[in-house]
Amino acid sequence: MKKNKSEKLYNAITDIDERFIEEAKGKIKNKAPSYVKWAMSAACLCIAAALGFAAINYIGRVNENEPVDISSDKQDAITEPSEGFSPYSSEPEEVKDNSESDGTVKYSELALPETEDNEELLNMPVTSEDIAMFDENMLKNQTDKIVEGKITNLYVKEYKYDVYDDKFGEGSVLHNILKTVVYEVAVDRTWYGDDISGQTIVIEDSTASCFDPLLTLKKGMKCVLPVYVYGEKLSVGDEYAGGDITRAGIYSSIYPFQPPIQVTTDGSYLVCGYWKTLTAKNAKKVIMDETYDGSYRNFMYLVDKDTFEQQMKVLIEKI
């Protein structure tokens, strides 16, 4: 009798929405890049560390309100954030000048649009762990769209959710706090993927770009952004036990740990040197102002519109 019922359920599963069937097919292609998932988890741990003892007491059992006794080895799971921020374990090596041009341009002379800083974003907790350096190959089989558009809104979102974690006892849950960066982009060009020009999309990242006050994401900035469809819910990476994990937007950046490609008001592109293809031709090295104390002093290039268009085509061929 029970068998008949489970067979009935099994048959009904055959007819579930094809979106779900497609979503699960070739799952590897659509899953978040591993370094992104890892970074989210690390950022989460750092927040836990920042919250100190209060965060540790946040751990509770499903049916009991009493905090669980945590031995010292379990506390080791909490990562201390480092002083200051570097997106890499050490200062990055200077990118080789891969441009054919020796031209330079001063950052202060770039025609950049008026933008608004977001203090909350700049003060977000950060991970102290290593993050793989950007490589254009990261775009392969991961990118759903490359869009160009203006950031019309930007804010920090906070999630509170629980996951089951038996290491604190059978049936215990771990309370988590996670902050993300949400930004709305009015798309005026789709470089790659189905055309969504004219639409506004919402991108949500686990981290605040490069954590460089000058070059990070800002409202009013016009950018070129490679994104993938992350989904409607936060991937909590463990056994979800409760809390609202509905994301503000379905898209995430392929690699949010470096300055976004910016479009200047005269149509050129300010590109980080790790974009080897995009900076391979006619790229002028950007000389940062003396007062600049970020990590990208020798990393930024200005590429004219025609070259960028040509090189973007080359890049898209590779992905």
């Binding site: 779900f20 799952k27 991937s235």
Partner: peptide, 12 residues
């Protein structure tokens, strides 16, 4: 969540 949904569909 997407992860749970994908897991369920992959298994069942």
């Amino acid at each position: 969540t997407r992860g749970d949904r994908v897991l369920f569909v992959r298994r069942y």
